[in-house]
Structures are given as C-alpha cells and as structure tokens.
C-alpha cells in the first residue's frame, strides 16, 4: 500500500502539490487526471523520488519516508526497485538492443543471471507483442513499439507498483491504442498501477480509483462512476472541455 500524508511541493511561488492526502491501494488501478500543470506528474514522480517534496509523509508498505528530512540513499533505492516507471517519451536506452534494454536492470540491479534475465525478457517482449524485435536497436522501432518495450523493461523488475506518466501522449491515435491495450491487460490482471493520462475513455474503462487534480490540490478522489456523473461544476467543465469534439 502506498500512502501520502500532507505532502507539499513548492516550485518558487507555485504550490505544485498542496497538502496531498491519498492512498493507492494494491492490485488496483488509480488514474490521475487534471489540466496541464495541475501537478499530476509531480505527484507521480514524488512516489519514486524523482521529485522531492518539501514536507509530508510517504508510506510504502513498512517503509516510512519523511520528506522534510534527508531521505537515505538506501531507502530511495529500495522504493525505486519496487516501483516501475513508464515515461511519456519512452526513454529507452538507445545504445542497447531491445532485449538488453529489458535485461540490463535485472542483471545489474537484481543480480539475476544473464540466462534467467534473457528468458524473462523474451517472455515479456512476447507479452507486449514484440518478440521478433529483441535484437533491434530502439530507434528502429515505432513510438508505440518503443513504449511497449519500455513497459516490458519496467515489468522485468517485477515491481509492486507500476507508474505510467502520460504513456500515450507522444503517440498518434493508432499507436496509442496498441499501448492502451497492453495497459488494459495489465489492469485486468490486477497489477497495482498508477496512471497519469489525458485519455478520459481509458480512465473510465480501467480506473478503480480516479484522482482529479488542479493547482496541486486533489479536488476529487473516488470511484470513476461518480466522477463521470460530474459531481461538481469544476469536474463538469473539465470533462466538457476534454470532450468538446463529441458534443
């Protein structure tokens, strides 16, 4: 179980995260939505300490982090080894083959044998439909394929939680669909996931919990059914703006 208590992050004048209190249950998919600059990514990136909030508490199972103190390197590594991250821009390692992108961390971080890591990696690549691309360099792949490799790379670490930071925002609709299918499958297998996205259709379909963020504040957290009935004027405005083409 991941939980944040009274978490604050300030960039200069801006309150990027304003007294965040939220839990991310295991084996559930939490989708974070909200307008650009609302703090969605900052919130997600605080969970693996790519961002360091100024204050607040972070509970990761039995591990308790106090953001107002220096976080020991050991605890940071411990959290990162149990969480996987998929980025908007894929961030595959261009100098390594697709297969080695997936095996690099299991071999050098988890100290798996190359043979074991390779066989796991091949299984994961098959799972995301890219078994035949194992020996290619990432630049030879389409954006959607690169993102699926990135998902396999994160899964290879067998993380407790998977974080997705706008995983389809850099993709055109066709490629977006192939990545969303992988995400949907992961959600249906009851992985613990936290997804930042602008895709409301996807949010409606896979979320067990929705968080609506604006100006660093959580304006809604709860089940998706209620969220999509537009319980507040602000949520109504937000959802209308996202769907203006259909209406």
């Amino acid at each position: 179980m991941l939980q944040l208590e009274h978490v604050n992050k300030i960039y200069g004048e801006r309150h990027a995260l304003n007294d965040i209190n939220i839990a991310f249950p295991e084996h559930k998919t939490t989708v974070i939505v909200g307008p650009s600059g609302s703090g969605k990514s900052t919130l997600l990136r605080s969970l693996n300490l790519l961002e360091r909030p100024e204050s607040g508490l972070y509970h990761f199972d039995d591990l308790n982090v106090d953001f107002s103190k220096t976080v020991p390197e050991k605890e940071i590594l411990q959290i990162r080894r149990q969480t996987g991250m998929v980025f908007q821009n894929f961030n595959l390692f261009p100098h390594l083959s697709v297969l080695r992108n997936v095996t690099e961390a299991p071999i050098h971080v988890l100290k798996q044998s190359p043979a074991a890591a390779t066989s796991t990696a091949k299984g994961l690549l098959a799972q995301v439909g890219l078994a035949e691309k194992a020996d290619q360099f990432p630049t030879a792949l389409s954006g959607g394929q690169q993102q699926r490799v990135a998902i396999a790379r994160a899964l290879a670490m067998k993380p407790k939680y998977m974080f997705f930071d706008e995983p389809t925002s850099a993709l055109d609709p066709e490629l977006e669909a192939e990545v969303l299918r992988v995400l949907l499958k992961l959600a249906q297998e009851h992985n613990s996931m936290i997804v930042v996205t602008h895709n409301m259709e996807f949010a409606r379909g896979v979320a067990d919990q929705i968080i609506f963020l604006e100006d660093g504040e959580i304006l809604y957290s709860g089940d998706p059914q209620t969220f999509f009935t537009e319980p507040t004027a602000r949520i109504h405005d937000f959802l209308s703006a996202m769907n203006f083409m259909i209406k």
Partner: peptide, 13 residues
Amino acid sequence: NGQWEAALTLGMT
C-alpha cells in the same frame, strides 16, 4: 536527462 531518470527508476545507483 530522461536517460538518467529511466535508469534511476530501474533502481540503478
């Protein structure tokens, strides 16, 4: 910077 971030989130030192 994304290369650093991707590798760090995989648990590398």
